[in-house]
Design a protein around this nucleic acid. Structure first.
Length: 270
DNA sequence: CTGAAATGGCAAG
DNA sequence: TTGCCCTTTCAGC
């Protein structure tokens, strides 16, 4: 499931499985039939991620744009592909592997102008070498919007989602409700560097782990935990549970329509 | 079986 | 801010 690191993994996987050879493209569910017909048999030239957007460029310069949204999932496997089950929007079939896409927010073909507009709209992606954190800082340092909301705004930073935003704020000891413009440059630098590091690890491992070695349950003498989303975290979805460091009950509140989690002791108001 | 929740984002008001 | 979209999974009857 999808924060930016997942999409970067997907891009790499697409290149490994499909690049440089003709790909069969179908839409078993039927909601992408026209697009699938236009792509069927083309050669995949490049797969690229920008934030949570996956861009697949084919040999006639058609660009397939995929956004998983909150529900979208991929499943992969070696050929032969199984008979379709559920709502498979898109199925790619290569030499040796298939990829099934279900429930995406977006699965459409983009014109070159639309691709550029998309890139221009997105903020810097901590996972991309071309990312410029200065751009994000400009969009943060004048706003009264809470930093927790700004970190989820893909025009400010592209890639982080609800888990990374909660976890980097915890690791930095920052109150998530602080206005963007109250952050110091040094505080922003810490957040950016931490995003880049944690998300790069997420790309390597395929999960979101944010707990430092000295705070793991083993190191703290607590019973081991299992997190629903498959990673070890400080505050995400741990509402009312004791903070791993200080024991204070983790707070939660819906801010801008999303569940936010933080420790009021480790992340005090300034 | 029904309903809610889920790592997003968009449009409308 | 609210409502809506997309789909699967899991809790609770």
């Amino acid at each position: 499931m999808p924060e930016g690191h997942t999409v970067h993994r997907l891009a790499a996987l697409h290149e490994r499985m499909f690049r440089g050879r003709p790909v069969r493209v179908e839409s078993p569910q039927g909601r992408f039939t026209d697009g699938a017909r236009r792509l069927d048999g083309r050669v995949l030239d490049e797969a690229e991620a920008h934030g949570k957007h996956l861009l697949l460029r084919f040999d006639d310069d058609q660009v397939l744009h995929i956004h998983l949204g909150i529900y979208g999932t991929y499943s992969f496997g070696p050929l032969p592909a199984p008979a379709p089950t559920g709502a498979i929007r898109l199925r790619l079939v290569g030499d040796a592997d298939y990829a099934d896409l279900r429930g995406p927010n977006a699965c459409d073909l983009l014109e070159p102008g639309e691709v550029k507009a998309l890139r221009d709209r997105l903020g810097p992606d901590p996972l991309r070498p071309d990312a410029d954190p200065e751009l994000a800082w400009r969009r943060i340092s004048r706003r009264i919007t809470p930093i927790a909301v700004l970190l989820m705004d893909q025009t400010v930073v592209a890639g982080p989602g609800n888990i990374y935003r909660a976890e980097v704020l915890f690791r930095a000891g920052l109150d998530p409700r602080r206005p963007g413009r109250s952050l110091t440059r040094a505080e922003w630098d810490v957040l950016w560097a931490d995003l880049a590091e944690l998300m790069a690890e997420g790309v390597r491992t395929g999960r979101i782990d944010t707990v430092r070695p000295e705070h793991t349950p083993e190191a703290m003498g607590r019973p081991p935990r299992v997190d629903d989303h498959g990673g070890e975290v400080y505050v995400y979805r741990r509402a009312a549970a004791p903070c791993l460091i200080c024991g204070t009950a983790v707070r939660t509140e819906i801010i801008a329509g999303r569940n936010l989690f933080w420790c009021p002791t480790c992340q005090p108001p300034r």
